[in-house]
Design a protein around this nucleic acid. Structure first.
Lengths: 149, 149
DNA sequence: ATGATAATGACAATCCTTTGCAAGTGATTT
DNA sequence: AAATCACTTGCAAAGGATTGTCATTATCAT
């Protein structure tokens, strides 16, 4: 359980899981560390990474994103725009934050709230449903795009 | 604003929007009226509809689902299984229900709650974000699949 | 260093969905 | 009832995101 996720600590995590530390994986990881607040698609990562390493292939980006999500470094999100988007997972939050998705500019911001905790308790009792994860999204218009809507 | 959605009332709605009432559209509509509680994918609708009308094309199913969603008869959902799923929209609910998605059998059940109302008020103030829609999903295991998890 | 083994890049294949198009059909007017 | 015309259809092809294949290359423990 790393509390602060540095480049080195993540490299160690990869090694511990017996993933090889290739330059491609390091470059992709760097990209997320440099864009901690963004929600990047595979294609966007590919574009960013090509600046450092023009040889890299799109399939490698997909494979690396899979791995980084699998070991908990990235979170895979679906904001309904037809592609998966990955964000850096800062802390080990078992109940991660929610998203505000702007229908105007597509920007994604984040929102923390504990309200769902109590809601989950109700659901477990009322529906006999064991909750493993939840996903809450708000679609609307951010302050920049809000005019006229 | 129809309160009860009968086959006839929906046909009228189509006509009023100057959509033609073709047999294909009627058959697809029937299918949803016969499976009011299900969350069908285009492919599933296609299979069901082919029993009544083997001539129908998949593209027509897609186009009809689009229309029925556009006029508010169906709701288009994304449960993360790589295809869109449509459900019959029973009442005119501006704030629609939430979904419980079973990771075991894939079954989707529904859940009503007003808790998000108050949460939305907080978000509007705190984030200056005009909310148009929300989407809340719980992933877990239903009572049948729950053993062992 | 070197060898076992995993990872890469290029490309094909897949899956769901949309689109182009020629032919057909529903609704309206005559 | 026939003519009309825009809307619809079915088919096949195209799209876009993702995954699979496979020969080549690179990593890491020894």
């Amino acid at each position: 359980m790393e509390e602060v996720k540095t480049f080195e600590s993540i490299c160690n995590l990869l090694r511990n899981r017996s993933y090889k530390l290739t330059p491609q994986r390091q470059t992709i990881l760097q990209t997320f560390l440099e864009h901690v607040d963004r929600h990047l698609s595979a294609e966007e990562v590919y574009m960013l990474v090509k600046h450092q390493n023009p040889e890299i292939g799109l399939a490698t980006v997909y494979r690396t994103l899979d791995i980084l999500a699998e070991i908990g470094i990235l979170l895979k999100n679906d904001f309904g725009d037809g592609r998966s988007r990955y964000e850096f997972s800062r802390k080990d939050e078992h109940h991660h934050h929610h998203h505000l998705i702007c229908l105007g500019c597509g920007n994604v911001s984040e929102f923390d709230d504990d309200l769902l905790e109590s809601l989950e308790a109700v659901i477990i009792k009322r529906n006999q449903f064991k909750i493993m994860d939840h996903d809450l999204k708000f679609y609307g218009y951010c302050s920049q795009c809000g005019e006229g809507h």
